[in-house]
Amino acid sequence: MIAPQELRIGNYLQDREDNLCQVVELGKDSVYAPVIGKAGTKLPNKPIDLTEEWLIKFGLKNSEAGYKVIVKQTKFSAIKAKGFFSVWLAGPFGLYLVKLKYVHQLQNLYQSVFLEEITIKE
């Protein structure tokens, strides 16, 4: 179970049958994240592991040195290492490294840095 304090409205999760869900409501001790495009969900929700497939869905391009995208003059790079991704942010504010394991963590970081949602680019 994931703590509601880690989430924002719009974060992606999975239900127990691995259906893609999206957070639509947060309470002090509760999360409501129904299956996208369906009426119900199989609770409880769980975090989605951040994978190379998810990086590509979010528009990062595969290169020899990992996955990259440039957003608002900031280089956003991700390299897989030991069960998590090292995410590098390099821009006018300096260079930062963050270790991420789940999709919602990437969504939250992206929104915090760029003040916009990262979206699926299908």
Rank of each mutant, 00 (worst) to 15 (best):
I118P: 01
Q5R: 12
L100A: 10
A39V: 05
Y96W: 03
V23T: 06
I48R: 12
Y32T: 13
V35Y: 00
N108I: 10
K99W: 00
E122T: 12
Y32L: 14
E17M: 12
N19Q: 14
L89K: 03
L89T: 10
N45L: 08
L60R: 06
Y12I: 13
G10Y: 01
R8F: 01
I36L: 10
F76W: 10
V71T: 13
F85M: 05
G37H: 03
A39I: 06
N45H: 08
Q5I: 12
L26N: 03
G37I: 09
K28N: 11
F76K: 06
F114H: 11
L26G: 03
K68A: 12
K46Y: 04
R16T: 14
L20Y: 05
L60W: 01
D18V: 06
G27A: 07
A65V: 05
K82G: 07
E52M: 03
L106W: 07
E53G: 08
Q22F: 00
K42H: 11
G94A: 03
L115E: 12
V35S: 02
K82T: 09
K99S: 04
Y110H: 13
G66S: 08
Y12E: 11
T119H: 05
P34R: 09
I48E: 01
N19T: 02
I70Y: 00
Y12G: 01
D15M: 06
D49L: 15
L100Q: 02
G94D: 01
A65I: 04
R16Q: 15
H104E: 02
V103Y: 02
Y32H: 11
I9G: 03
F114C: 12
P34A: 07
F58T: 10
L89H: 06
F85E: 01
V113I: 15
Q14N: 11
L115N: 15
E64K: 14
V103W: 03
L97Q: 13
E17K: 15
L43W: 10
G59S: 06
K101R: 15
V98I: 15
T74W: 04
L100T: 07
A65S: 05
K57D: 13
K99A: 01
K80A: 15
Q22H: 01
V71A: 00
T41A: 13
L95K: 15
L100W: 01
I70K: 11
K99T: 00
Q73E: 15
S30A: 11
K61F: 00
Q107E: 14
K46N: 09
K42Q: 09
S86T: 13
G91L: 09
P44W: 08
K75L: 13
S30C: 03
S63Y: 04
L89Q: 05
A65R: 04
V69H: 01
